[in-house]
């Protein structure tokens, strides 16, 4: 080989390696220090929720509180959390009658005629904060993600409003905010839980049907609840890694 060419290649190689490492170093400088929040370490938490259907009375407090706390559009069809009511004939689990008038925001109308053979119950729903979330997997721009503490969040400055995630969510938990044309969803009250408060829905639930839980905190009562009850997540066959655990979930619930 011509020694000149060798020298040239060596020089060029060194230059390439150096510029690559410089770009990595620059990236680290630009990124800044991680974990900037005071008194809150993301790696110490892994958030989830338990919902006890056996004590939910369908008062709609959670729906109203959520809309106030998170400035959700007040019109129907925009909900970060909502309550469904089920009517199931016990021998026909596959065809329940489900409705959710205004998501339960106004409470539920009283029904005078009651068929004694039919099973009645409420199911509160919200984002399941899946850690294998389909909505995160389909986002083309990295605008939705699972945070290091297990909350599925949306970067509103990055969202294009393409609606892929709205279709991907098996639980119907996302909507397009008509004011910003970006996607919106339950943040598990991230601004509250990182300050040591519970979510607005759990704060206002009168029967304790909803309880926020930190699965990484060994002292959290959620562990006791999960041990003592037969819990299930919604659509376990989808393998989404959902972290909202339902106690008393009927087989008819979709």
């Amino acid at each position: 080989m011509n020694p000149d060419r060798r020298a040239f290649l060596q020089k060029t190689g060194k230059l390439l390696v150096l510029s690559a490492s410089a770009s990595v170093a620059w990236e680290a400088i630009v990124a800044g220090r991680p974990e900037t929040a005071e008194n809150y370490k993301m790696s110490d938490h892994w958030w989830g929720m338990v919902i006890d259907i056996d004590v939910c009375i369908g008062c709609g407090n959670c729906v109203r509180a959520c809309k106030v706390e998170n400035d959700v559009p007040r019109e129907p069809l925009f909900f970060r959390t909502w309550v469904e009511r089920y009517q199931v004939t016990p021998d026909d689990l596959e065809h329940p009658t489900v409705d959710s008038p205004n998501g339960g925001y106004d409470g539920f109308p009283v029904q005078d005629k009651v068929d004694e053979k039919v099973k009645h119950f409420y199911v509160p729903k919200l984002c399941n904060h899946c850690h294998q979330s389909p909505c995160v997997q389909v986002c083309p721009v990295g605008a939705t993600f699972v945070s290091p503490d297990g909350v599925v969040l949306v970067d509103k400055t990055y969202c294009l409003g393409c609606r892929y995630c709205v279709q991907a969510c098996p639980y119907g938990c996302r909507f397009i905010d008509p004011r910003t044309q970006t996607v919106d969803k339950c943040t598990l009250c991230y601004h509250r839980i990182t300050k040591g408060l519970t979510t607005a829905c759990c704060e206002t639930c009168p029967t304790g049907a909803r309880q926020l839980g930190d699965l990484k905190n060994p002292k959290d009562p959620i562990h006791e609840f999960l041990r003592d009850h037969h819990v299930l997540v919604l659509k376990p066959q989808m393998a989404t890694g959902a972290k909202v655990y339902y106690n008393g979930l009927d087989g008819s619930v979709r």
Partner: peptide
């Protein structure tokens, strides 16, 4: 890319919402 394929500042944005309750 600090924590994953997203902007790390989005976490602070989510944290910045004012409390009501």
């Amino acid at each position: 890319g600090l924590y994953g394929h997203y902007r790390a500042g989005a976490l602070d944005d989510a944290r910045a919402r004012p409390l009501q309750y």
